[in-house]
Design a protein around this nucleic acid. Structure first.
Ligand SMILES: [Mn+2]
Ligand SMILES: [Mn+2]
Ligand SMILES: [Zn+2]
Ligand SMILES: [Zn+2]
Lengths: 140, 140
DNA sequence: ATTAGATTTGTAATGATTACAAAATTAAAA
DNA sequence: TTTTAATTTTGTAATCATTACAAATCTAAT
């Protein structure tokens, strides 16, 4: 049980979110799989060791975690919502060929939008699309 | 028939996209309704004057226009894809209270992501979320 | 006018997400 | 520790946006 996961558990406690077994498992999964997984991937993988898990619970848990600000919702493309436990300042690149989502460094916080005086900004997202180096060299 | 719409027609021609009646109507609609409409809104509104229009045609047309780069696809939130005929450099703000999407000015082109050497970037998007001034004053 | 190709249309299928209510679990009260 | 109330989980059904598909219609070239 690494310290990073213990910190996450502590964070849940502080936000008054019950530490149910299922929630801890989902949180642990996100902590160990930083590939921006979909609900279906999270469910399928966890179901192998937790055969009673319901997909609805995965949805519920992700909603709770997202509302509390512990995970970031990535809607770079419709039809597949993805989740990221890394809520720090970074951007996302989706390869249109292989579908992989890469993190990249960009100073989102310093992004100032002109014409947003009086707006309350709760979240900022930067999404790029294109072709990743792997796919470029494979000439897909 | 304004000049802006004539320019769009010309652009379609140059890209070798057939100027069918339905396509022109969708294009004209997007040109006149710069509120980032959903497929359903486009379909419902156009259907009033073009009762034979099929929703599938709206989907098909938007795909053609998006692939040709004439409209921008906005997936700021899953479950509702929106379309924007303004493909110029700008960002989008979605109000979590009223759902309205606002344009704002941000220099997207100058956004450089570190860690993207060797990546081919085809599109850049900046999405903000929060509460708009209207909703803030209405205390929704 | 014929013909081939492209586009439109309506309907059915898909697939992600949500709604819902019963069952199980957890937390609080007694 | 029991009792009770509240929360969470689960499975199934419903919803809703989007896509697949094939027949009908339209367009453009010959
Ligand atoms: Mn990320
Ligand atoms: Mn816009
Ligand atoms: Zn790739
Ligand atoms: Zn608003």
């Amino acid at each position: 049980m690494n310290t990073s996961f213990e910190n996450l558990k502590q964070e849940l406690k502080e936000k008054n979110i019950n530490l149910s077994y299922q929630r801890l498992k989902v949180l642990e999964y996100l902590n160990n799989n930083r590939c921006h997984p979909t609900v279906d991937k999270i469910y399928t993988d966890l179901h192998k060791e937790l055969s009673t898990l319901s997909k609805t619970t995965v949805y519920n848990t992700l909603r709770v975690l997202a509302e509390s600000g512990m995970v970031r919702v990535i809607t770079i493309e419709d039809n597949e919502t993805r989740y990221d436990i890394n809520v720090e300042n970074h951007g996302h690149f989706k390869c249109d060929s292989c579908g992989e989502i890469y993190d990249f460094s960009v100073n989102i916080d310093s992004l100032i939008g002109e014409g947003l005086d009086g707006f309350m900004i709760n979240s900022k997202n930067v999404y790029f699309n294109g072709i990743c180096p792997n796919c470029l060299s494979n000439k897909n």
